[in-house]
């Protein structure tokens, strides 16, 4: 079981540590400014040969250095903390399993030593014995059988069409809502409208789908229809979200 409270405390500690360098830097900059003002003031009092006096000024001004210099001045205990924070990831990364020296034959390698939780052995992972025989019937899900890998498929730009196809096949309203949301977020309001409509037809209790439907209508310039839709939905569901959206639309009309 995870000890959430302990973890929360550790997180707070982590946050505080992360703040220290900033606090030190701000204090440092503050101190720097004060010294600067102070020295400028002094300069005003005793009229000096101008060139000589400018040199110390230049030394202090470069911003990135200020923090560092100041940190170096601060007494050691505060100095060490920011350092420790600076390199946590690098320290934490290589686990013993991963750094095992190559070519040293181990009796039984356990490459998955660093799994966070005890696992039941995966049902489908091919074991040596099973995958060995040619005749072993492999149950392949239809998906991967019909579509072996195609590089042409554009997967870096997120492939909404794939999901749309799946929605066509399985009519899962959550999938429909996902697509509607996606189109709405991408400014594609007529598509958002279409998918929200389809989704409502499959399941007419999904508030968010109704809201996207109405908001899309507004974006498409059909505010009146949006209001009617919302009223209809409110009469069935008493939805707070729908009420507030309708309220906003009415207010905007009055302006």
């Amino acid at each position: 079981m995870i000890d959430i409270h302990l973890l929360e405390r550790r997180w707070i500690k982590y946050k505080i540590k992360r703040l220290i360098p900033y606090v030190v830097a701000i204090l440092g900059i503050g101190a720097g400014l004060i010294t600067l003002l102070y020295s400028v003031n002094q300069n005003d009092v005793t009229p000096p040969p101008p060139i000589k006096q400018e040199i110390p000024l230049v030394k202090i001004t470069p911003k990135p250095d200020i923090a560092e210099e100041v940190i170096a001045i601060v007494p050691p205990p505060t100095l060490q903390q920011p350092r420790a924070v600076a390199a946590p990831i690098a320290v934490a990364r290589p686990t013993p399993a991963e750094t095992s020296v190559a070519w040293k034959p181990k009796a039984l390698p356990s490459p998955k030593e660093n799994i966070p939780v005890p696992l039941s052995i995966p049902k489908n992972t091919p074991l040596v014995a099973v995958s060995a025989t040619f005749s072993t019937p492999v149950v392949v899900p239809p998906n991967s059988q019909n579509k072996p890998i195609s590089i042409k498929q554009n997967s870096t730009t997120f492939d909404i069409h794939e999901i749309e196809d799946r929605f066509k096949n399985n009519s899962n309203p959550h999938l429909g809502l996902y697509i509607a949301r996606y189109h709405y977020d991408n400014g594609n309001y007529s598509e958002a409208y279409n998918y929200a409509l389809k989704t409502n037809a499959i399941n007419n209790t999904l508030e968010e789908s109704w809201l996207i439907f109405a908001k899309s209508l507004v974006k498409l310039g059909r505010t009146e229809q949006a209001k009617k839709t919302l009223q209809l939905y409110i009469s069935q569901s008493n939805s707070e979200g729908a009420k507030s959206l309708l309220n906003n639309l009415t207010k905007e009309d009055e302006k």
């Binding site: 660093n114 995966p122 392949v140 554009n154």
Partner: peptide
């Protein structure tokens, strides 16, 4: 997100 290697979970990344 269990650390399991199963070819059926293969995800296409360009």
């Amino acid at each position: 997100f269990l650390d399991i290697v199963n070819p059926r979970d293969y995800v296409q990344i360009d």
